[in-house]
Design a protein around this nucleic acid. Sequence first.
RNA 1: GGGCCGCUAGCUCAGCAGGUAGAGCAACGCCCUUUUAAGGCGUGGGUCAAAGGUUCGAAUCCUUUGCGGCUCACCA
Length: 527
Amino acid sequence: MKKENSPSVHWADIHARNIIRSKGDKAQYVCASGITPSGTVHIGNFREIISVELVVRALRDLGRDVRFIYSWDDFDVFRKVPKNMPEQELLQSYLRKPITVVPDTTGTSENYARANEERIERQLHIVGIDPEYIYQARQYQAGTYAQSIRTALEHREEIRACLNKHRREPLPESWMPVSVFSSFTGRDATEVISWDGQWGITYRCLETGKEETLDMRSAKWVKLPWRIDWPMRWAFEGVDFEPAGKDHHSEGGSFDTAKEIVKVFGSDAPYTFQYDFIRIKGKGGKISSSSGEVVSLTDVLEIYQPEIVRYLFAGTRPNTEFAVSFDLDVLKIYEDYDKCERIYYGDEEVGEKRRQKESRIYELSQVSSVPEDKPYQVPFRHLCNLLQIHSRDIDSVISSLGVVEKHQEERLRTRCACALNWLDLYAPEEFTFSLREPGSSVPEFPNEILKALGQLCHVAERMDDLSDSELSEEIYAAAHASGCEPKDLFAASYQVLIGKERGPRLAGFMRTCGREKVIPLLRSYAQ
RNA sequence: GGGCCGCUAGCUCAGCAGGUAGAGCAACGCCCUUUUAAGGCGUGGGUCAAAGGUUCGAAUCCUUUGCGGCUCACCA
């Protein structure tokens, strides 16, 4: 085992090398991802695309040219109205139509599918993911896949046999590997009854009973069903790599049938791997897109910096399940990321193996390139306290930190915004506080406590010249000198400072707040 | 019924192209009588689900079993 030059064992790098090995030496590798925008794109869907993107980066880091495509299956049928959408009744009337013809009832986009697409495309850009988007509805309606549809019809029997191997109910003799949206109703309640062996297909609208013959080259409402559409696109785009969730990867699932069906299109299945689903921790609701209660990339970006979102996925092997947390785990994730960063910049002593591994994860976590200078680190937990001490004012927190270079500021501001969101949305009550306004009323205290608070005020005046342990001792001394229990002084101090019974450890907390904030509050009690 | 994933310290998990068991939290102890919730230092704690196999060597690879979870067989 050579230490230097040992190839990366990061999963993305391993897959990248496997792709090259299994697909051979090529001028360009096509990596594909895609889902249907039939509902809010959730964080589970995101695992698919970031898994591909990480492999894309790994391939590029090996000096390979990569085409990274993302297919929006927006010619899909509108099956169910998500509960979180406005104008439920209106949407109801569009069921069974293509999602590109369903109106966007949130009023931001040209249609329902586009609305879902735009939301996530914007977010993906933020985390550094910019694939070449392919819109399936547009492709089908432009006749791009006409020849492929014809190919599917020509191989109808093979395809049917393949699908039947895994079906409980075999497909009927008359089954055709195409589906049509009725031009009479716009809905997919249709039955294809014949194909003329050329470009003509005839279907019957099941709701009106009417029949119509279409030319596939100009037809606007003809598509391949999913299990055929997928391998068709592999062949059409020459896809070398596409992972899939475990729902597709089970035996008899769509990947299984697709890898056989792709042969009729004259191609082979891409290199693949299976990724597992992700769980959510510390936030109610499920991931599913139809229930309405979804956790989206937006929700995650509210709490995690973009590079930390990437870190979550880059640092976890795709074929195992993991949880995205919104509870106290957030603190640990930030600490882990910061540690990874310190390891990358050589500020933390670790073994060589660990260093290589963490460094690679760090690189892959970056939205673009790795910063030349180490970013300014403020532990998330401490930041939560700072923000609350400074009345949630980000500018004031940043100026209190001292030397923050201009190029370090942006990340820091993002982290501040995330911390504020976390405090508002998920932090336990013990974590939140705000400094009181001087002069506002607090409970009466017995004399010895008042005396101790006065002493404490004098201590605060000198605290910048005291060491941590000295300061701590002075606090106890203040209590003892005034004849009260330290415990009671602590409780009173928190009342005076933040209006609560408890708070962060007093000595450090006072120092963090600073003289100019602490003294006025204490002074009103000084005797 | 098939497929996949998991089972490692009290808890949450990392470690997996084999090379003497790790982190965080919790617990316990110490940091001048002395701590309240962010600090520092330290300690304890695991027959790596079970049994076989391959190997000089297995948490890691293979086989079988058990328990838990997901998924396919309808649509996508």
